[in-house]
Design a protein around this nucleic acid. Structure first.
Length: 211
DNA sequence: GACCAGGTCCTTG
DNA sequence: CAAGGACATGGT
């Protein structure tokens, strides 16, 4: 009889938290988080940072600036993140959605999380991970981010839930506290970079710590 | 030169 | 519904 998905999730949260403690993750104002969330799709964060700098140098690192910018100028700034044409289109769509629906980022603050999430998921190029990253790191909401690392680790540990089910599992286990959501996702990424994909799976702390 | 990166969308079987 | 391809640059 193997442990249930939720007790395995609970253990992931607990073990990683005691191992890594508090770590800084995804700093920046709301505009930067929104833009970074799109740019980091299938892309290393170091490349995203360069693109954010390039956007800042051009005074284009805000959603309203991107809303009015020429696509070619956005493309030039974000080329180093790859997929630069589709990402430019996605940023434009996101800026348009927020401007039209809420009159800007400020207008989103009073709205409930689920309403914001539905709206974001309706935008071309914004899927579950990007939407939840925006909500969790940009608007301090309790919306848990499921990324490729999280899926990989959960499969590795025999957790069968996937997609929205996996998100629900973690959200039932976590306290209703944004910093817990941030930290747990940060821990998972940190852990995955350290142990997954480098043939170090067998020494990983989740498999070897007790039980 | 091959392979992958903090996804998403579209097309096929 | 699962699987495969497209989107593109930069690092290992």
């Amino acid at each position: 009889m193997s442990a249930s998905g939720s007790s395995k999730c609970e253990r992931i949260v607990r073990v990683l938290s005691s191992h890594y403690g508090k770590i800084p993750w995804w700093p920046g104002d709301t505009d930067e988080v929104l833009i970074g969330a799109v740019l980091t799709q299938q892309t290393r964060w170091e490349n995203v940072e360069q693109a954010l700098l390039a956007l800042k140098e051009r005074n284009m690192c805000t959603l309203s600036a991107l809303h009015g910018a020429e696509p070619v100028n956005i493309e030039d700034a974000i080329r180093c993140t790859g997929f630069y044409r589709v990402k430019t289109k996605r940023l434009k769509e996101l800026a348009q959605h927020i401007t039209e629906q809420y009159g800007g980022i400020q207008g989103m603050n009073p709205r409930p999380t689920q309403e914001l999430r539905r709206g974001l998921l309706g935008v071309y190029g914004i899927g579950a991970e990007t939407a939840d990253s925006i909500l969790c790191y940009g608007f301090n909401r309790t919306s848990f981010v499921i990324d490729a690392y999280t899926r990989r680790i959960c499969i590795c540990l025999g957790i069968v839930a996937k997609g929205e089910e996996l998100k629900d599992l973690f959200e039932h286990v976590l306290p209703e506290d944004n910093s817990a959501y941030r930290q747990t996702h940060a821990h998972i990424v940190e852990y995955a970079k350290e142990f997954c994909g480098k043939n170090r799976c067998e020494e990983c702390i989740l498999k070897n710590s007790g039980e």
